[in-house]
Each structure stands twice: as C-alpha cells, then as structure tokens.
C-alpha cells in the first residue's frame, strides 16, 4: 500500500533537513505505530506524506499503491485515499461542520469521477458515523473546529476519516489533549475502520494509545531515521525504558 524509500526532506524556508533517509513499508490491513521523542521528525513525516509545501523532498521516493505520490498535489492524494488526522485541526470560521463534510466528500467523489451524494444518502452516513463517535447534531451545525474542545476536535477528525473512507490513514498524535473517555471513543472509532483493505500509520509519543489501537508493527523514529522496528511489545519496552537507548544509537 505505502512504500517509503530513503526519504530525505527539509524545511523549504531555511533548508534544515529533518528526515535523513526514512524507509517504511506498510501493507494493506496493517496498523503501524511510529513512536519517537520530540523533534524526531514524526509530524514532518506526516506532512510530507500529505504534501504540505512547507517541506521539500530532496531524495527518495514514496509509492502509494504503486503510484509516485510525490508528484501528486495534496487534493489528488486525498482523492486517491490518503487521509491525515491533524494533531492540531484547523478552524474554518463560518463553515458548519456538516457543510464541510459534504463539500469534502463531494470534492473527492468529483475528483474520482463518481456522482455527487444525494442529501438523504449523505445525512444517513453522517448520522451513523456521528452517532458512533458521540458527535451531536448541535456540534455538526457549529463552524468546523471553532471553539471546539480538544476532544471535540479529535472526534471531528475521526468523523471525517470515517466518512471519507480513505485507504491510508495517518494519525498524527491523535491522543494528545484527550482524557480517558475521549481516548476510548476516538480509539473505538479508529478500530472500527480497521480492515483488510486499509492501512494505518499511528504517530504517537505514548504507549497508552496503543493499548486501545493495538499495532501490528512498531517503529522508533529518531533524528529523521527509523532506528528500530518490532512488534507491539516494543512499545511496552519504550514505555519502561524511555527513548534514550535508541536516541544514542542514532547519534
């Protein structure tokens, strides 16, 4: 599904290199966790995958279902099935969440040459997904992310993910700012989307998210490289011993 080969990327503005050769292969049906200390390049990796133009790729390639993803614009990547759940979701004043959902779903359908959703069909999908994530009708009428609590923002991200039905989900620190109850709701939402045709990359600092979303593979990212790969027990080991061993190894 996703093949990242020797990926080097830098900040466009000042040419600071953040990723120094990332290799990662994620197959359909798998959930990979990427862990690592602050500043290791986790968020940069997610932005580069989504195509944010604050970053430049200087070397390497990214294949998404065999297609060169680096040649695609952010909206083309989205329509091809790449979804990024933001660590800090952006406010869109005056645009009701419901309206945003409809616009996004129809934009992707249009890009893929599919017909627009009928209103009843759209409403049915939204109600079902929103019910599962405990998102109220009232919240759907409010402008997207404006005045949302941390938990509401993250639930709105997962709601968008459910409705857009992506093939590849990248979740950037989705657990940050969540209390225990919200963490459970969000995790349940994510787990519901696990399936043989879908791949997920879960970026997190902490092991606790991985108690809820149990990964198939765990990677440690340090100083822009993947320095260790293991199964879910690796996350438990990191929780106990910290990142120090791996940070030193990379240095």
């Amino acid at each position: 599904m996703l093949e990242i080969k020797n990926l080097h990327a830098r900040i466009a503005e000042d040419h600071t290199e953040i990723l120094h050769g990332v290799d990662l292969t994620v197959n359909a049906g798998e959930v990979h966790a990427i862990m690592g200390p602050n500043g290791s390049g986790k968020s940069t990796l997610s932005y580069v995958l989504a195509g944010k133009d604050d970053y430049e790729v200087t070397e390497g390639e990214v294949l998404f279902n065999g297609r060169n993803m680096l040649d695609m614009s952010p909206d083309e990547r989205a329509a091809a099935g790449m979804f990024l759940a933001f660590q800090y979701p952006i406010e869109i004043p005056g645009v009701a969440t419901m309206e945003f959902l409809k616009t996004a779903m129809n934009a992707q359908r249009k890009a893929r040459g599919e017909p627009q959703l009928s209103i009843p069909d759209f409403m049915k999908r939204v109600k079902e997904a929103a019910g599962f994530l405990n998102v109220s009708m009232d919240m759907l009428k409010r402008p997207l992310n404006v005045g949302f609590s941390g938990g509401e923002k993250k639930r709105a991200e997962i709601l968008q993910m459910s409705l857009l039905e992506p093939k590849l989900c990248v979740l950037d620190e989705t657990d940050s700012g969540l209390d225990i109850d919200a963490l459970r709701i969000v995790s349940d939402g994510v787990n519901k989307l696990r399936g043989p045709d879908r791949a997920m990359v879960v970026i997190t600092h902490y092991q606790r998210l991985l108690d809820h979303i149990v990964p198939d593979v765990v990677h440690v990212l340090s100083k822009g490289r993947i320095v260790k790969t293991g199964d879910k027990d690796l996350a438990l080991e990191l929780e106990k011993n910290g990142y120090a061993d791996y940070v030193d190894a990379a240095a």
Partner: peptide, 11 residues
C-alpha cells in the same frame, strides 16, 4: 487553512 481543506480533497 488551505492545506487543511486540500488534505480533505478540495481543490
């Protein structure tokens, strides 16, 4: 804001 919307598939 632009990047967020593009990531959701809007042109």
């Amino acid at each position: 804001q632009m990047f967020y919307c593009l990531q959701r598939g809007l042109t």
